[in-house]
């Protein structure tokens, strides 16, 4: 019987065109044995929630550098709850001011990864969150 795999959607909401960080994380998580669905740039919250549903992912990771996190992230979580994907763990990476982190967590974000967070640590935190360890 095939072992169940952790499936992760990695998306870049907002208008900034830098997806280097997102790609680095995507590759690191693949190397940690996860299946990564990479959706590319300029994703709207609607696109992210719908892709998460179709791909039946355990995790939605968003990389945001543009400062749009306070508008985009809570909206994605709302849509995930509305389409039955409320169980998916949501992670945010990128440049997020310290004072926004508790607010995002309050809205349902599992963890926020600032620039320079080790990809090994990201993989470990995601695995623990999904497997409930």
């Amino acid at each position: 019987m095939t072992k169940e795999k952790i499936r992760v959607l990695i998306a870049k909401p907002g208008l900034d065109g830098h997806d280097r960080g997102a790609k680095v994380v995507a590759r690191a998580l693949r190397d940690a044995g996860m299946e990564i669905i990479y959706t590319g740039l300029r994703q709207t919250p609607e696109m992210i929630a719908e892709a998460a549903l179709q791909e039946d992912v355990d995790v939605v990771g968003m990389s945001i550098l543009s400062g749009a996190h306070m508008a985009q992230v809570p909206r994605v979580i709302e849509l995930l709850q509305a389409n039955g994907m409320g169980d998916a763990k949501v992670f945010v990476g990128g440049i997020i001011p310290d004072e926004d982190i508790p607010v995002l967590k309050e809205k349902g974000v599992s963890a926020v990864f600032g620039p320079g967070t080790s990809t090994i640590l990201i993989g470990k935190i995601i695995r623990e969150a999904v497997l409930g360890e």
Binding site: K3, K5, A26, R27, L29, R30, D31, A32, G33, M34, E35, I36, I37, Y38, T39, G40, Q43, T44, E46, M47, E50, A51, Q54, E55
Partner: peptide, 24 residues
């Protein structure tokens, strides 16, 4: 690693938001 990087959706973004399409 047993992992995979699945990037086909990048090229299919025109299809997002269409209830008549389902991509896996």
């Amino acid at each position: 690693s047993g992992g995979a990087l699945l990037g086909d959706r990048i090229r299919m973004r025109d299809l997002a938001g269409d209830a008549g399409v389902f991509i896996r």
